[in-house]
Design a protein around this nucleic acid. Structure first.
Length: 199
DNA sequence: ACGAAGATTGGCT
DNA sequence: GCCAATCTTCGTC
């Protein structure tokens, strides 16, 4: 069952971030469907969060989609090489978002291997935000797209991740955010092989 | 108009 | 473990 818009439009981005664990991220590109179960997320809490692109209410051509109502994709190019996929949350005007950092491949694994130029299934295939975008074929032309669309969406399939199996820790790669870098806003599924290795 | 830095990854030592 | 790849974004001149 596809997650409804109300799921994303809650203002508590930390809760949405936790709730996305165990959900299934789908893409359908040129008739090929690929699916990954979300196992790692990070919450970015809009204006109050120094690590967020929307910190201090920054509104630019890039960040504008973060201010739209929740339930759409925010995708941007990082280091000139990798696409990173975020889910925009909360209501219009509140630029909260959840970065999806890792998924476990579930369907279309052959296609995912091909996109990653790999021959063997290895956690590296989707462990990391840039890696999962490549495996699922996510590129910036999906930026701003509704998660109710026919090319990218998220489903609930009855998988339950219990609170005791959710690990909360500091976010990755945000040292520039000072004290905000220490907030435990990264969530992952305990003992899942596809969770990325933080440096 | 210019330049530094970035929510990363993979290859080489 | 270290470092290059690669290009958009944004602050500053």
């Amino acid at each position: 069952m596809r997650l409804p818009e109300e799921f994303y439009r809650r203002d508590d981005v930390l809760q949405v971030s936790r709730d996305l664990l165990g959900k299934y991220l789908f893409t359908k590109i040129n008739g090929k469907t690929t699916v990954g179960m979300i196992v790692e997320t990070e919450a970015y809490r809009g204006p109050e969060d120094k690590a967020s692109h929307a910190w201090n209410g920054r509104f630019t051509n890039r960040t504008r989609v973060m201010y739209e109502p929740g339930g759409i994709a925010y995708i941007y190019l990082c280091y000139g090489i990798h696409y990173l996929f975020n889910v925009v949350t909360a209501t219009e005007g509140i630029p909260h978002a959840v970065l999806v950092r890792a998924v476990e491949p579930v369907e279309g694994i052959a296609e995912q291997l091909e996109r990653r130029k790999m021959t063997q299934l290895h956690p590296r295939i989707t462990a990391g935000p840039g890696a999962l975008c490549m495996a699922l074929g996510i590129t910036r032309d999906m930026n701003g797209k509704s998660l109710q669309s026919e090319s990218i969406w998220i489903e609930e399939r009855g998988t339950v991740i219990e609170s005791k199996d959710i690990i909360a820790g500091p976010r990755v790669g945000v040292a520039y955010a000072g004290e905000h870098a220490l907030l435990p806003w990264r969530f992952s599924v305990r003992n899942n092989k596809f969770v990325s290795k933080a440096k």
